[in-house]
Each structure stands twice: as C-alpha cells, then as structure tokens.
C-alpha cells in the first residue's frame, strides 16, 4: 500500500516522459546492478563505474552486459583505489555521471533491481537520477542480503546469519569471478539471485 503511494508520488514528480517506462514493471526480467564509488558514505560518494546485467528466467544475459566508467567530479580517495582498482587515469575516458545514469535508466527500463546492499547503490544513483528525471528510481528492489537472511532463517531460525558477500558466494556455491569490477559484481549478484530463486527465495 505504502509502496503504491510512493510510486504514485514518484510518477507525479517525473519530469521527463521518456522515463515513464521505469514505472512499467517488466513481467519476467530483472536487472542486477552494482556501482563502484569513491566513498562508502552516500553523501560524499561519487560514481566511478556502473555495471548491470539482465536476468531473463534462469538466464543471465551476460552478452548484453551494461558496463560503463564514470568520470568523477573529484579525485577518488586513495584507500578506495585499492578496492576497485580504478585509478584517476582509468576514469578520464569515462562518461559524465549524468550521461552514464541516463544510459543506465534506458537499460533498466521497467525491470526490478537486484543487488547486494542495493540500498547504497540506489541511494548513490538517485543523487544523479533525481536531477535528471525529477524523481528517484521507482523500480522494485530485490535485496539479496535480505533474501539470503530469509532463506537461512527458514533453515535455522535461531542462529546468527552471516551476511558477508563471500559467505553468500560460498554458501550458494556461486563461482568466484577473477575480476572485481562493477559488471563482474553485477553478474555475481545475478548468480546469487538465481541460486536463491532456485531455493524459493527469489
């Protein structure tokens, strides 16, 4: 109910009709999204790269992976460079944040979003989405850590559930990809989603 009201408000705020498609939930496709950012603080975080991949039924459409680098307005913090491996020089060829997010919205369309701690990614994205289209991302969100918690809680109601990404990867027996980038993490998230879906928690 609340969600419906929220979506109504979002639709009302939408300034650009081209993005009406975001409100039309796709019947059987989702999009797994992951962003690399300059900081883990939403307030100061700037986008460095965005990866996304569509999930159609049991298939991850890796052949149409969305994978763009973003040129940030400020230099990335040194400590984060070591995490995402994106040096300032790698990013100089990137798109402007507005351009990158615009393309991402076209890619996502009405598909529900899938991600691991998606809330953070969506919050960072919204910093750019709102000025662009007038409202925040209206798409339904599938939070993997929450689904995983439900799955584990069903198995062992009393135990502590470890929600570290590596734990999900190990427990759900998803192969580790050698490359740590936004697109790769989006694919990993998509694989985690399919594994959870198989267990009835999609």
């Amino acid at each position: 109910m609340l969600a419906a009201i929220k979506r109504g408000w979002q639709k009302h705020s939408l300034r650009d009709e081209r993005y009406l498609a975001l409100f039309d939930e796709h019947p059987d496709e989702l999009v797994s999204v992951d962003c690399e950012t300059t900081s883990l603080n939403v307030g100061e975080a700037e986008l460095l790269s965005i990866g996304a991949v569509k999930i159609r039924g049991n298939r991850i459409i890796a052949s149409e992976t969305f994978d763009v680098l973003v040129r940030p307005e400020h230099r990335p913090e040194a400590k984060n460079v070591s995490v995402h491996g994106l040096r300032p020089r790698d990013l100089s060829a990137g798109l402007t944040p507005a351009d990158a997010v615009g393309r991402l919205l076209d890619f996502i369309g009405g598909r529900a979003l899938v991600g691991y701690y998606l809330e953070f990614d969506v919050a960072v994205l919204n910093k750019y989405v709102k000025p662009l289209i007038g409202c925040t991302l209206p798409n339904r969100q599938v939070e993997l850590s929450a689904r995983y918690y439900d799955y584990k809680f069903r198995q062992h109601p009393d135990s502590h559930v470890d929600l570290k990404l590596q734990t999900l990867i190990d427990e759900l027996k998803v192969p580790a990809l050698p490359r740590h980038d936004a697109a790769g993490d989006a694919i990993t998230a998509a694989m985690l989603y399919l594994a959870l879906k198989q267990r009835g928690f999609g």
Partner: peptide, 8 residues
C-alpha cells in the same frame, strides 16, 4: 565471452 550468457 562478450557473446556468452550464464544460465542456472
């Protein structure tokens, strides 16, 4: 690889 999909 660019043309490969992953299927579960």
């Amino acid at each position: 690889e660019a043309q490969a999909d992953i299927v579960f």
